Computed example of a mutant assay.
Amino acid sequence: MSRSSALGRSRQRGLSIIEVLVSMVIGLVVVGAVLLSYIASGQTNKLQAAYSQMNEDAQIGLLILSRDLQLAGYAQATGHDPLTFQFGRTYSGNAVFGCDTGFVAANTTAAVACAATGSSPAIEVVYEGDVTNTVPTSGGLPSDCLGASLTQQTVGATSFYITRNRYYVANSVLGRPELHCASNKAAATGGALVDNVEGMKIWYGEANPIDKRQIVRYVSAANVLDPTFANVVSVRVCLLMRSSEPVLTAEDPSTYLDCDSVTQNSADRFARRAYFTTTALRNKMTF
């Protein structure tokens, strides 16, 4: 055998088993690191998307409630009393009314009544509705929170419309918690406004009877001193939002603060967060 043939065969020698195994291990480590990074990035994006959706839904829900509360007690003036220097009003009843246990029937045509038991509160917001502070119907009439036309009322020579929007939390037919609204319209059974609202809590700011602009305390509906809620000039609302699907893993923090700022645990892996707003009842304030 010539020397050149031996050198050719030595140059064609392949990898040893050890070299192949080392290369495979290095490759698996690299692939594993990339895979873990991809999974972690996907979970982070999933959580961010869930919290972004919760933020958006909470803003919509609180905006709806805050807007209606700013109108609570609104009514047109109907005349001036020269002795008392006060204007008459088309509506002078409750601006708001609430129940810590919810309403017996949110869509009753009569006055709402508190349920004997229940864990979710409800609130009724009342004001004179017109085509500027409500969404007009196709017939050009003021509407309630579900878009149903209001019924005209007449006192003396004055005709007007009263809005009675009632907000509460209920489950959909699929079991998803939602912020609902109903009114005193006979055909209005209530409808969903915002999805994934798991809970709601409401506190009422009572004014000093002497100084109507000075709020002395925030209490639940059961602790409001005046049963007509006449001294309530502000309302604080908390919405407890839930993600639309389980997004938490075993590595993610599963605790959250509820509407009472108490730490709770999401054992079902749904993300949750509490959102707050406080609204002054401008038509109840004395300026």
Rank of each mutant, 00 (worst) to 15 (best):
V104W: 13
P177W: 03
S16T: 15
G32F: 12
A221D: 01
C259T: 05
Y218K: 02
A157Q: 14
L193D: 11
V232K: 01
A222R: 09
D268T: 02
D68Q: 06
D57H: 06
A271M: 02
F287R: 07
I60F: 01
F270S: 03
A148G: 11
D144T: 03
M54I: 03
S4V: 07
N283K: 09
Q153S: 15
V237I: 14
Y38S: 15
S143H: 06
K201G: 07
A40M: 13
N231C: 08
A274I: 05
V219K: 00
Q153H: 11
R282H: 09
V112W: 10
S254F: 06
P227K: 05
C181E: 03
R164E: 12
Y91D: 01
T109A: 15
V112D: 06
G175Q: 04
I17Y: 12
S37M: 12
V125M: 07
G129L: 04
I26H: 08
Q48T: 14
F103Y: 13
R273D: 05
V247L: 09
I60G: 04
I215A: 14
G147S: 09
G14W: 01
G73C: 00
A33W: 15
F276Y: 15
Q76H: 04
V25C: 10
G61C: 02
Q70S: 01
G102T: 08
S10N: 03
L150M: 12
G61F: 01
D57T: 04
V34F: 15
F160M: 10
S261I: 07
T277E: 00
S143E: 02
G27F: 10
N208Y: 09
S243G: 10
V25T: 15
V219R: 01
Y127L: 01
Y204K: 11
V262K: 05
R282K: 09
A148I: 04
P121Y: 01
A222I: 09
G42P: 09
V237G: 04
T277K: 07
R89V: 02
I202G: 05
M200D: 05
F160T: 09
S16D: 09
I210N: 14
A274Y: 00
A274V: 05
I202A: 10
T108E: 13
V247N: 03
T279A: 01
G191P: 08
G139A: 14
I18A: 14
T228I: 04
E19K: 03
L36F: 13
V169E: 08
Q70K: 02
G61T: 01
A77K: 08
V219G: 05
V155F: 14
E251P: 01
I26P: 08
R213K: 10
V131Q: 04
D252S: 06
L36M: 15
V194P: 13
S92Y: 01
P246A: 00
V135C: 01
A221V: 06
T263D: 00
I64G: 03
T255Y: 08
V135W: 05
A72S: 02
S92K: 02
Q153F: 14
R3W: 11
L225P: 06
A50N: 08
N165G: 12
I39F: 13
A186F: 05
T154W: 11
Q153I: 09
P253M: 08
T263A: 03
G61K: 00
Y204C: 12
D144N: 13
